[in-house]
Amino acid sequence: MTHPHQTLILDKTQIQQKVTRMAYEIYEQNFEEQALVLAGIQENGYILAEMLLQQLQTISDKEVSLLSVTLDKSSPLEKPVEVLPSSDNLENKTIIIVDDVLNTGKTLAYTLNTFLPYNPKKVEIATLVNRHHTLFPVSATYTGYSLATTLGEHVAVVLKENEVAAYLH
């Protein structure tokens, strides 16, 4: 699926290595926690959260649950952020919000706002690619790949069965 003006920045093996390293970092920074909640932002953030969940289950015996977060990224106030399964038991839990690319931080800021009323113990952020163009007070706790880009450039992460890659165009 390469387009002529795309540059491959991460292939499938590299993405898997980043996910494994992030899982170890999550485990190390949360070794005292009994349970972790991974909240993946649809669609790629959720797939990434599933990949992290598999790795965490391989390296630890922690109870890790997975939430799906759906929001309108272009206009997040139009519809409420949807969290499934319903997030009623998040009090005093460690929540890790997972998304594929951290660009301006807008999506993560609105998602973070959704979890605060549940009184979590702490909220962390995991992202595969961090572009460092944040306009909102959000920073990644765990970053797979740090990439300095111009505002005109775009990072596309593909997490499909037949293609796992990240491109810059």
Rank of each mutant, 00 (worst) to 15 (best):
residue 61 D to W: 03
residue 151 L to T: 04
residue 89 N to P: 03
residue 124 E to R: 11
residue 4 P to V: 11
residue 97 I to N: 06
residue 60 S to R: 09
residue 70 T to K: 15
residue 154 H to P: 00
residue 161 E to G: 01
residue 114 T to R: 13
residue 140 A to S: 14
residue 55 Q to I: 08
residue 89 N to Q: 15
residue 1 M to Y: 06
residue 102 L to Y: 07
residue 6 Q to N: 03
residue 1 M to Q: 11
residue 38 L to C: 10
residue 31 F to E: 13
residue 36 L to V: 13
residue 47 I to D: 02
residue 114 T to H: 04
residue 134 T to Y: 01
residue 11 D to C: 08
residue 54 Q to K: 15
residue 80 P to G: 09
residue 127 T to S: 11
residue 162 N to P: 00
residue 57 Q to P: 00
residue 83 V to G: 14
residue 32 E to M: 14
residue 144 G to N: 06
residue 21 R to T: 14
residue 29 Q to F: 05
residue 141 T to G: 05
residue 155 V to F: 01
residue 77 L to N: 15
residue 152 G to T: 02
residue 103 N to M: 13
residue 157 V to A: 02
residue 146 S to W: 05
residue 141 T to Y: 02
residue 23 A to L: 05
residue 50 E to W: 03
residue 167 Y to I: 00
residue 154 H to G: 00
residue 19 V to T: 10
residue 160 K to G: 10
residue 133 H to T: 02
residue 166 A to L: 06
residue 45 G to M: 05
residue 123 V to L: 09
residue 42 Q to H: 11
residue 70 T to G: 08
residue 52 L to K: 03
residue 156 A to F: 06
residue 8 L to D: 00
residue 79 K to F: 12
residue 79 K to C: 08
residue 138 V to K: 03
residue 40 G to K: 05
residue 34 Q to C: 04
residue 101 V to A: 11
residue 43 E to N: 12
residue 62 K to M: 14
residue 161 E to R: 09
residue 62 K to P: 06
residue 14 Q to D: 03
residue 162 N to Y: 11
residue 5 H to V: 01
residue 63 E to A: 13
residue 53 L to T: 00
residue 144 G to E: 07
residue 15 I to R: 04
residue 157 V to C: 05
residue 166 A to S: 11
residue 117 P to E: 04
residue 36 L to H: 08
residue 95 I to F: 11
residue 153 E to C: 00
residue 72 D to G: 06
residue 157 V to Y: 01
residue 127 T to D: 00
residue 117 P to N: 03
residue 131 R to L: 06
residue 102 L to R: 09
residue 165 A to E: 01
residue 56 L to D: 07
residue 123 V to R: 04
residue 50 E to I: 05
residue 115 F to P: 08
residue 100 D to V: 13
residue 18 K to F: 01
residue 71 L to V: 09
residue 109 A to D: 14
residue 79 K to E: 11
residue 26 I to E: 09
residue 33 E to H: 10
residue 156 A to Q: 13
residue 145 Y to P: 06
residue 59 I to Q: 07
residue 110 Y to A: 10
residue 87 S to V: 02
residue 87 S to C: 13
residue 74 S to M: 14
residue 61 D to T: 13
residue 93 K to D: 10
residue 138 V to E: 05
residue 122 K to S: 13
residue 89 N to R: 14
residue 121 K to R: 15
residue 53 L to N: 05
residue 6 Q to C: 01
residue 100 D to A: 15
residue 137 P to H: 06
residue 105 G to N: 12
residue 16 Q to V: 05
residue 122 K to F: 02
residue 143 T to I: 15
residue 73 K to F: 09
residue 46 Y to N: 07
residue 132 H to Q: 04
residue 86 S to L: 12
residue 32 E to G: 10
residue 139 S to K: 14
residue 155 V to Y: 02
residue 20 T to M: 07
residue 3 H to T: 03
residue 43 E to R: 15
residue 32 E to N: 14
residue 55 Q to P: 00
residue 146 S to M: 07
residue 154 H to K: 09
residue 150 T to Y: 06
residue 7 T to S: 02
residue 151 L to I: 05
residue 139 S to H: 14
residue 73 K to T: 14
residue 76 P to C: 12
residue 30 N to Y: 08
residue 136 F to I: 05
residue 65 S to A: 08
residue 153 E to R: 02
residue 101 V to Q: 10
residue 151 L to M: 03
residue 70 T to C: 12
residue 64 V to W: 10
residue 27 Y to V: 00
residue 102 L to K: 12
residue 103 N to L: 06
residue 84 L to G: 04
